[in-house]
């Protein structure tokens, strides 16, 4: 009976709290809770100096200008950001085939054209066929939103304009996703999202800002 007491002595855990406290304080000090978020965009590749700019019909370009006083103009008319989102959606969708808004091409025509090319892009052909399978012969807009800023435009305004334009495309994608799959765009599978992105790509072209005279 007496021998039992000679077992391994219990470790004193009183200092455990101190150790844990030290670690806790270290993490409290070094922590920054913010998660990195933002608008992801792709820049156009550099243009070779003697390359010709591809010709785009005037009706297929929606020009958005932001001047040095942070005012937004669509096709030369002053507007606000909410109208901008609506105008971009209208321009891309063009449901009544208004001759002043963007033109459309059907996926079947795009597929035909791709097949006739000397070097057809197999990836594109696959995507077009899947679209025809799952959604039928969808029209795809040829429209491009052209965003031009001044060198003195505030960055905050620029981000708000970008945000309004991206919002228009996201809403169009969401609308199509609900129509075809009955789910919002973000709940779709990756390959379904790819098809919708093909129909509504974020076609935003950014001209280099014009140099302004010194203030």
């Amino acid at each position: 009976m007496a021998r039992r007491h000679h077992g391994i002595p219990e470790i004193n855990a009183a200092s455990m709290a101190d150790i844990a406290f030290m670690l806790l304080i270290f993490f409290l000090v070094t922590t920054t809770m913010s998660v990195d978020k933002g608008i992801t965009r792709k820049l156009p590749p550099p243009v070779p100096p003697n390359a010709q700019t591809p010709k785009v019909k005037e009706r297929n370009v929606l020009s958005v200008l932001v001047n040095k006083d942070n005012q937004v103009a669509i096709q030369g008319e002053l507007t606000d950001l909410n109208t901008l989102t609506e105008r971009v959606k209208e321009f891309i969708q063009n449901p009544n085939d208004d001759p002043n808004l963007s033109e459309h091409e059907f996926i079947s025509d795009l597929l035909d054209r791709e097949m006739k090319k000397p070097k057809p892009d197999q990836n594109k052909i696959k995507i077009y066929k899947e679209i025809l399978d799952q959604m039928g012969n969808m029209p795809k807009s040829k429209g491009v939103v052209s965003l031009q800023t001044d060198r003195a435009t505030k960055y905050e305004m620029y981000i708000h304009v970008q945000d309004a334009i991206v919002k228009a495309f996201n809403e169009l994608r969401d609308q199509l996703a609900r129509q075809v799959y009955g789910k919002p765009f973000k709940d779709l599978k990756e390959d379904q999202q790819k098809l919708i992105r093909e129909i509504y790509p974020i076609s935003l072209s950014e001209a280099e800002p014009r140099r302004v005279t010194t203030k």
């Binding site: 990195d36 978020k37 933002g38 608008i39 992801t40 792709k42 820049l43 590749p45 550099p46 981000i159």
Partner: peptide
């Protein structure tokens, strides 16, 4: 663009 770093993200 010059160095082909085309994927960017505007932090917001």
């Amino acid at each position: 663009r010059k160095v082909q770093a085309l994927k960017i993200n505007y932090s917001a």
